[in-house]
């Protein structure tokens, strides 16, 4: 059974493009809506981040409702950092009731990297357990085995880190996510295609769809900052050098070029099932990247 447009697209064998939008801190949704309108017909689905980097913002679920209202295909990012198993299940029921059926299951960043460092870290579940819990809901009961009135169906995914410096424990976890029910993966940012090739050779044995994560960098400084401060990001030295070589003010242009080049190679080599573009604050340039990668306007 197909549970979402996004799933249908991936199943069709087409090269799929997703991107993400980060809601603002505050009740003003104007920028968010602007980005949704800009992107909804250019990509196959839009992730809405869930208090990314543990910084409190407008919620993912709220952002997904807006994507829906504006005619886009949302992917709900759901982390275990802030909600226990009751709240997670309740949010999933709400999401399903509003037609939000793609869910990316994440453990969530540590509270310590964010702006509410004294908050209680919840982590009642981890990403693997969250995936399994969703499969349980779909079987008709809550996680305690109590019967549900109205059973939700989802298309569920998770993340994987092919460029991690200790990659084997990440792959062990990847396999646990597959066994727990993950159907699609959006990888952490890829900068070195050799490691993506290695990963895809290994991952071919699993019946899951994989979208390579592409981070849009705006300067060498940003790349170094991310290496030092953002969990799960390892920008290769080659890319940092490339960004450092351009004249002042042209960094983002270079970042777009790098992202487009990666995407084009991935598509031309048929390396994976699609890409997931993370523009971290520069959502407005995603159309330029698509154009530069010769992927203009994926038909809605």
């Amino acid at each position: 059974m197909i549970n979402s447009l996004f799933e249908e697209k991936l199943s069709s064998g087409e090269f799929v493009v997703t991107t993400e939008v980060g809601p603002a801190k505050g009740a003003d949704t104007a920028d968010l809506v602007h980005h949704i309108d800009l992107l909804k017909d250019r990509v196959d689905a839009i992730n809405v981040t869930d208090h990314q980097s543990s910084v409190m913002r407008f919620p993912s679920l709220g952002g997904c409702l807006l994507v829906k209202e504006h005619g886009g295909e949302p992917i709900l990012q759901m982390t275990c950092r802030d909600r226990n198993r009751l709240a997670l299940q309740a949010d999933l029921l709400l999401a399903y009731s509003r037609g939000i059926t793609n869910v990316l299951c994440l453990t969530g960043d540590s509270i310590d990297v964010g702006d509410h460092k004294e908050a209680k870290p919840v982590f009642d579940l981890d990403s693997v357990q969250l995936l399994k819990m969703i499969r349980t809901l779909e079987s008709g009961t809550d996680i305690e085995g109590n019967e549900l009135k109205g059973v939700p169906r989802f298309y569920i995914g998770a993340s994987v880190h092919p460029e991690a410096d200790f990659v084997e424990p990440q792959l062990i976890k990847f396999e646990k996510k597959v066994s727990a029910g993950a159907q699609f993966f959006q990888t952490q940012g890829i900068f070195d295609l050799a490691s993506l090739r290695r990963f895809m050779q290994y991952a071919a044995q699993f019946n899951v769809k994989i979208l390579a994560g592409i981070i849009v960098l705006a300067s060498a400084r940003m790349a170094r900052y991310m290496n030092d401060n953002v969990p799960g990001i390892i920008v290769s030295q080659a890319i940092i050098d490339e960004l450092a070589d351009v004249e002042k003010g042209k960094g983002l242009q270079k970042g777009i070029e790098i992202a487009a080049r990666l995407i084009k190679t991935i598509k031309d080599e048929n390396l994976c099932h699609g890409v997931h573009i993370m523009a971290v604050g520069n959502e407005g340039v995603v159309p330029d990247i698509l154009e530069a990668a010769e992927l203009v306007s994926v038909s809605p």
């Binding site: 982590f123 981890d126 200790f166 799960g232 390892i234």
Partner: peptide
């Protein structure tokens, strides 16, 4: 830091914790 049970999160770098 997260007390998780099924293996490392993606934030680990150089064998150290993301936090």
């Amino acid at each position: 830091t997260k007390g998780i049970l099924n293996g490392p999160c993606a934030g680990t770098k150089n064998g150290k914790c993301e936090a």
